[in-house]
Design a protein around this nucleic acid. Structure first.
Lengths: 234, 234
DNA sequence: GTGTGTTTTTTGTTGCAACATAATTGTGCT
DNA sequence: AGCACAATTATGTTGCAACAAAAAACACAC
C-alpha cells in the first residue's frame, strides 16, 4: 500500500521529527479503523506502544486533537470521537464548499496525463469493489479525490480538506462495510472525469458535490441503523 | 479591549495549559502587528520573554506553524510569513467559500437581539474609523464578522475560518494603515445587516462575499505598492 | 443495589539537561 | 571586496523526573 501521507502539502522540514512519525501512525490507524469510537488514547500508552518517549507521543495527540481527529472527553481524557449526526452535517457542508472549490479549480489546470492517472485510479476502485476488497477501495477512493484536489494548486486548501476527512475518517471506516456494498460513487466519478476532460469546472464541481452528498446520505443512514441497534438491547 | 480569544469554540479543557497561554499571546502579537514579516521566533527566546520553560513555548510555536500563522524558513527557523500574493488569493478563495457558507447559515438562525448587537458593533466600527482609531476599527470589524459566523452554530467551521484570518492577519495588520482610510466595508456590512433582518441567506452571503472581495482588492494593491517601494531602493 | 465519600492509581503538563544539527560567525585565500 | 570553508554558537528535539490534578478503584452507609 502507498505511503501513509501521500497528499501532504510541500514539506519544509527535512528531518522528520519523531512526533511526526507518531502522528502519521496514529492517523493511519484511525483511518484504518484500528481504533473504535470512544477508545481512549494516553500519552504514556502511545509512547510505550511505539517505543518513543512521552514528548513525541504528547505532540502527536495534541496535534490530532487540534485537528479534530481526537476529542477531549475530559481534561485528561482524549478519545476517538463518535460520529455525531450534527458534526457529520457540519463537516459535510464544509466539504461541499471546500472540495467543490478545489474541484472547480482543478478543471482549469488539469493535464491530459492527469486524467489518465485518474482513470487508472478509478479502475483500481472498480477492481477492488468487484473483489470485495473494501479497505483498498476506500483507499483508492481517497486517492481519486485528493488527486483531483491537488490539481487545484492550492496547498492550504488541500491541507484543510485533509483534516475534514480525518475528522470523520475514523467513524467512516468503522462502519463502511455497511454501505460499501453499493457501488460507491462510480457514477459521480465518471461525471467528474468527463468534466475534467472538457475543462468544465462547473461540471467537475457538480460531480464532486454529488459524490459528497451521496456519501453523506449513506453514512447518515448507516449511523442511524447502528444507533437503532444499539438502542434496542436484547 | 476584549479577551484575546472571544470566538473560540466550546472549550473542553478547563485548566488552561501554559502552552495555550503562550499560543494566545503570540497570536495576539501577530494580529496586532507586533512582529513584522520575516521576524524569527525561537523556542528559548519565547520561553525567556514570557517566563516559561521551553516546552510550552515549543508547543505554541509548533501549533502556530501547523495553522500556517508561522512558516518554516529552514529546518530550525520559524518566521512570520510575508504576504505572498498567491497565498493571499488562495486564502481569499477559501474565505469566500467558508465565510459565505457561515453567513448563509447564520441568516436561518439569527435572532432579533443578535441583529441589535451587530448594529452596535457596526457603530463602534464607524466611530473608530471616524476618529482614526484604526486598530480598534479592525478589531471591531473582526468582531462583526465572527459574530455573524457564530450564529451559524457550526463550531468546526468557525475554528477553520479563524485559522484563515490568522494566516493573513499578521501581514494584514502590518499594512492596514495604507488602506484603512477608505471606509472599510461599511456598505457591505449594512447589506449584511439588511439580509439578516430579512432572514435572506443569499443576501447575507452576497454581502459578506462582497466584503471579502473588497478587502482582497485593497490588500492586493497595498502589497503591490509595498513591494514596488521595496524593489526601488535609493 | 445505589449512591457518596475516600483512597489509590493514572495521567497530562512542565521544566530541564543532553544531543545532534542547523545557523552564524570567523578565517584565510584569491 | 568576494567567496569557500572551518569553527563556534544557537536551536529544535527528545527523554525523563517531578508535580498537580483527574480518573478509577474502593469502602461504606443506607
Amino acid at each position: 500500500m502507498a505511503s501513509s501521507t501521500p497528499f501532504a502539502k510541500e514539506d519544509d522540514r527535512q528531518p522528520t521529527r519523531l512526533g511526526d512519525r507518531v502522528y502519521e501512525q496514529i492517523k493511519e490507524r484511525l483511518i484504518r479503523g484500528a481504533y473504535g469510537p470512544g477508545d481512549k488514547l494516553t500519552v504514556r500508552g502511545l509512547a510505550e506502544t511505539l517505543g518513543v518517549s512521552s514528548t513525541p507521543a504528547r505532540d502527536a495527540i495534541n496535534r490530532l486533537a487540534l485537528e479534530g481527529a481526537l476529542v477531549y472527553a475530559g481534561p485528561k481524557t482524549v478519545i476517538v470521537p463518535a460520529l455525531d449526526p450534527e458534526v457529520l452535517e457540519e463537516i459535510t457542508l464544509m466539504r461541499l464548499a471546500l472540495e467543490g472549490l478545489a474541484a472547480e479549480r482543478a478543471a482549469a489546470r488539469v493535464a491530459d496525463e492527469d486524467i489518465e492517472a485518474l482513470k487508472e485510479t478509478q479502475a483500481r476502485i472498480n477492481a477492488a469493489l468487484r473483489e470485495r476488497r473494501y479497505a483498498e477501495a476506500l483507499w483508492s477512493n481517497k486517492e481519486f479525490h485528493f488527486s483531483i484536489y491537488k490539481l487545484s494548486g492550492m496547498p492550504h486548501l488541500l491541507a484543510t480538506i485533509e483534516t475534514l476527512w480525518l475528522r470523520i475518517g475514523a467513524s467512516f471506516n468503522d462502519l463502511y462495510p455497511e454501505f460499501a456494498e453499493a457501488k460507491y460513487g462510480i457514477h459521480n466519478h465518471m461525471a467528474a472525469l468527463e468534466g475534467l476532460a472538457e475543462r468544465d469546472g462547473s461540471a467537475v464541481r457538480a460531480a464532486i458535490e454529488s459524490d459528497i452528498r451521496d456519501g453523506y446520505r449513506r453514512m447518515r443512514q448507516a449511523t442511524r441503523e447502528r444507533n437503532a441497534i444499539q438502542s434496542l438491547p436484547s
